[in-house]
Design a protein around this nucleic acid. Structure first.
Lengths: 206, 206
DNA sequence: AACTTTCACATACCTCGGGTATGTGAGTAC
DNA sequence: GTACTCACATACCCGAGGTATGTGAAAGTT
C-alpha cells in the first residue's frame, strides 16, 4: 500500500531532521550545506525548502528537539531523588554528562546562541532546562536551605557555569576532569547553603 | 611629505581593524561583508586580503585586541586593591561591567567561540583574562582563604558563570539586574571560603 | 642617477551555497 | 470522474568569500 501523503511528509521531515542533526553535530552549522542534507535523504534542495523555510529554520527545529531531550534527561535525573537538594545536584550532574554528547555541545551550547541569536537561544534554554534549575533553586529558597534572593541572576550564573564547564570537559584529556568539575560544582552549590555563621564571615556591606 | 611604505601599511591595517571592530560588534560576524569593511576604509577587497588572509583572520585579529583590552581592564581593577580576596571581587565586577560594551559581548562572548572554534577561543580567553582569575584563585588557595583544589575546573565554572551573566545583563531591562547579579556572584564566591564548620554541613562523600 | 626589485594596492574573475520561481504528477476531495 | 492540493523536482539567481594577475610608486643596488 502506498503511504498516505501526511505519512510521507512526516517521514521526509523526520529524515531531514535526523540527517541535519548528525551533520550539525559533526561539522557545525556553518560547514553543513543545506542541499547535501537534502540529498543524503534522497530529496532535492527544493523539497527540503518545502519543509523548512531556511537553513536556519532547519537548525532551529533541530535545536528545539535536542533541547527538549536534554531537559527531559535533567528532569528525570532529578526526579529520582526526594530531597530537593539532592534533586538539584542530580540535575546538575545529569546536565554535565548529557553535554558530553557532541550533539548537545556543538549544536546547543556552541552554535545555537550565534545562529539563532542569544535572545531566542535563551528562551529555548529556559523552556527546556534552565527552568528546572530555577524551580529547584526556588524550592530550596522556600525551604530556607539557601538564602532568599532573586532567582534569575543566580540561575544564569549557574547555568553559564555548567555550559562552560561542559565545553571544557569535552576537550579535556584529563580522565579526572569530570570528577573534579563535579566536586568544584558541589563546592559552589554547598557554599550557597544558608548557615547561621554567615553574617560573621561576610558581613553584608555588599 | 609622503608617508613611508611601512607607515602607510600600518595605517591601512589599523583602519581596517577599527572599521571591522565596529561592524562585528554592531552586526555580528556573519552579517559583516568583508568587501564593505574594505571600501569603508577607501580600499578594495583585494587590498584588504593583502593584510588579512581571510575574513576569519580579520576577525581573529579584532578578537585578540578586544581580549587584550579586556584583560587589562580586569587586571587594573584588581590591582587597585591589596587584599587578594578584594582583588578577586574587583576583577569579577570589572569583567561584568566591561562586558556591558557590545564590542566585548558580541565579538568575544558570542561570535568568537563559534567562528574561531571553542579551542582557540579558550586559549585566547586564557591568555587575556581567565589567567587572572586562575591566579587569583591560586593565591587564595595558597593563603588558605579557599580550600585547596584543582584550579582549572573552578576557573572554568566561574568564567562561564560570568560570561553568561554578562550576556544576560545585556538584554535585561531590570535596572537592578547588575546589582543583583553582583550580589549573587558575591554569594557564590563567599560560599567558596574555607570555614571550619564545613565538614559538618557537607561531609565529603563526594 | 639609472636600474631593478619589492610591495601596497587595484581589477577582474571564479565558485560555492543559500534562496526562489516555476513545473509536475500522484493523492485527495467533491 | 473531475478539479484541486501538495509533496516533491528543475532550473535559475545572486551575493559573498576567495584568488590570480596587473600596476605604479617607494626602496634597495651598482
Amino acid at each position: 500500500m502506498a503511504p498516505t501523503r501526511a505519512e510521507q511528509r512526516a517521514a521526509t521531515r523526520r529524515a531531514l531532521l535526523d540527517e541535519a542533526r548528525r551533520r550539525f553535530a559533526a561539522d557545525g552549522y556553518h560547514d553543513v550545506v543545506f542541499a547535501e542534507v537534502a540529498h543524503a535523504v534522497r530529496v532535492t534542495k527544493g523539497a527540503a525548502y518545502h519543509h523548512f523555510a531556511s537553513k536556519t529554520g532547519l537548525f532551529r527545529a533541530v535545536v528545539a528537539e535536542v533541547q527538549a531531550e536534554l531537559g527531559e534527561r535533567v528532569a528525570a535525573a532529578a526526579q529520582r531523588h526526594d530531597d530537593p537538594w539532592e534533586q538539584l545536584r542530580a540535575g546538575c550532574r545529569a546536565f554535565l554528562s548529557a553535554a558530553a554528547d557532541p550533539t548537545v555541545r556543538r549544536i546547543v551550547l556552541l552554535d545555537a546562541p550565534t545562529v539563532l541569536g542569544w535572545h531566542e537561544w535563551r528562551a529555548m534554554d529556559e523552556a527546556a532546562s534552565a527552568r528546572h534549575l530555577a524551580e529547584a533553586l526556588e524550592t530550596l529558597m522556600a525551604a530556607g536551605t539557601i538564602p532568599d534572593q532573586p532567582v534569575a541572576p543566580l540561575t544564569r550564573l549557574l547555568s553559564g557555569a555548567m555550559n562552560e564547564a561542559a565545553l571544557w570537559l569535552a576537550q579535556s584529556t584529563d580522565p579526572q576532569a569530570l570528577a573534579q568539575t563535579e566536586r568544584a560544582l558541589d563546592h559552589l552549590l554547598t557554599g550557597l547553603r544558608a548557615r547561621p555563621a554567615e553574617e560573621l564571615i561576610a558581613p553584608r556591606e555588599w
